[in-house]
Write a protein that binds this DNA or RNA. Structure first.
Length: 426
DNA sequence: CGGTTTTGACCTGCGC
DNA sequence: GCGCAGGTCAAAACCG
């Protein structure tokens, strides 16, 4: 399994390099933001006053569940296996982008995956003063008299930070190590699949919630959106998602963060694309909340998810020209960049300083310096080749950012044990 | 029996 | 002000 993954890493890596080279040639001296202007019809100025976190993205990948083969919300039987086992197959993801990009049919329904994957990161800026109180626990978080407005604002931002995970899975929901209780279900406009609402039940009063919905365009894709920060210790199995959520929240506050913050130690590099289309994040696509989306399920039929798009982003102020321009900001992040950072190649591709947005085509779009791109790619190649297990790399990445994300308990009861045992097999 | 799911009602924000 | 949509509540049902 690992060797297969490694082979696919190499394939991905080579594809990545080729695309980057192609992109370099295509772009020439054209400033990326100028291209964005053209593509976006220069509407970006509407958002230029928004706060833009300019930091690396810090993302963790939660294992997926494959134990069932029914929709998470298609009525039917109740699935009480909150954190089912058998995540191993998913964690040992096949990262063969090129071979599988157009072979959606080749993805078996039984859970064995051969689909290529990428990681997508999107941001939606938060409209000031429009934070939904419904997400605030007990609806009292905004009334704490002992906290300054700044503190409250920060906390509200953290609560609103969202991490969306796209995963190709037949399971009702992805396994993330946490225990969830469903508290609602709604039909969302534009998607025939209902959206399910869950809240974390691992600790009383934990504000973390998540939404689960099938992708309207590809119902084999499960979109899980996490929101909030856990108020309790997490089992290792839950660390990935939790740290991701935390990172997303931190990102919102990163405008003033130093390079020593957790995000700078992130294991992923962010890259930009034009604001995503609604299909990018079907869950709450219209919400103004900042959202990070991890796309673990290539959906070949979606134009902007093709390799040529995914690999465009490492370029300065890179943008995927095929995208729409509805949400103000989105970032792309793919495994290639993950490899970069995992391989301690972060110096080769740097984010813009948080305090200086002048070089950004869009103030809310994170950019990556173009310096030493070729070297970085070469180094990435070596690093990727040297790394036999991307999953392990991801795990290490996640672990590396857990430091500030709460204590880690070696083991916890219940479902997390299943997850642990599963992940340990990787 | 306790915890979870279901599901209709309710609340809130937003656009017209 | 009204209607719509997203999100949450809470009582009833369900399940181990």
């Amino acid at each position: 399994m690992l060797s297969y993954a490694t082979n696919n890493f190499n394939s991905l890596q080579m594809h990545f390099i080729a695309l980057m080279q192609e992109r370099n040639q295509r772009n020439g001296s054209l400033q990326w933001h100028e291209a964005m202007h053209e593509k976006m019809g220069d509407k970006r100025n509407e958002h230029e006053d928004a706060i833009v976190p300019r930091r690396f993205l810090n993302l963790g990948l939660a294992p997926l569940a494959d134990e069932a083969s029914h929709s998470p919300t298609e009525g039917g039987s109740q699935d009480r296996s909150i954190s089912p086992p058998n995540n191993v197959e998913v964690m040992s993801m096949d990262y063969n982008v090129e071979e599988n990009y157009n072979s959606k049919e080749a993805v078996p329904i039984d859970g064995e995956r051969s689909d290529g994957r990428d990681v997508r990161v999107t941001f939606r800026e938060e409209s000031p003063g429009k934070v939904s109180q419904s997400w605030i626990p007990n609806k009292a978080a905004n009334s704490s008299p002992s906290k300054s407005s700044d503190q409250q604002s920060q906390e509200a931002t953290i609560r609103k930070a969202r991490v969306s995970v796209r995963a190709r899975s037949e399971a009702p929901m992805i396994t993330d190590g946490c225990q969830w209780r469903k508290y609602g279900q709604k039909m969302a406009k534009g998607n025939p699949c209902p959206r399910a609402y869950y809240r974390c039940t691992m600790a009383a009063g934990c504000p973390v919630r998540k939404q689960v919905q099938r992708c309207a365009e590809d119902r084999s894709v499960l979109i899980t959106t996490y929101e909030g920060k856990h108020s309790h210790p997490l089992p290792p199995a839950a660390m990935a998602t939790a740290s991701t959520t935390s990172a997303a929240a931190n990102m919102l506050l990163s405008g003033s963060m130093s390079s020593t913050d957790g995000l700078m130690n992130s294991s992923f590099l962010a890259k930009t694309e034009l604001p995503g289309s609604s299909s990018l994040s079907p869950i709450s696509a219209a919400a103004p909340f900042p959202t990070v989306t991890l796309d673990l399920a290539h959906t070949p039929n979606v134009p902007f998810r093709r390799p040529s798009t995914q690999f465009q982003v490492p370029f300065p102020n890179g943008a995927a020209p095929v995208l729409g321009a509805t949400p103000p900001t989105s970032l792309l992040l793919d495994f290639g960049q993950t490899f970069f950072n995992q391989s301690k190649l972060i110096s080769g591709v740097q984010m813009s300083p948080g305090s200086d947005g002048s070089q950004l085509s869009h103030p809310k779009v994170q950019s990556i310096q173009p310096s030493s791109l070729a070297d970085t790619v070469s180094a990435a190649t070596a690093a990727i080749t040297a790394d036999p297990s991307f999953t392990a790399v991801l795990a290490a990445a996640i672990t590396s950012i857990i430091g500030g994300g709460g204590s880690s308990r070696a083991a916890q009861t219940g479902n997390s044990n299943n997850n642990n045992s599963s992940e340990n097999k990787i």
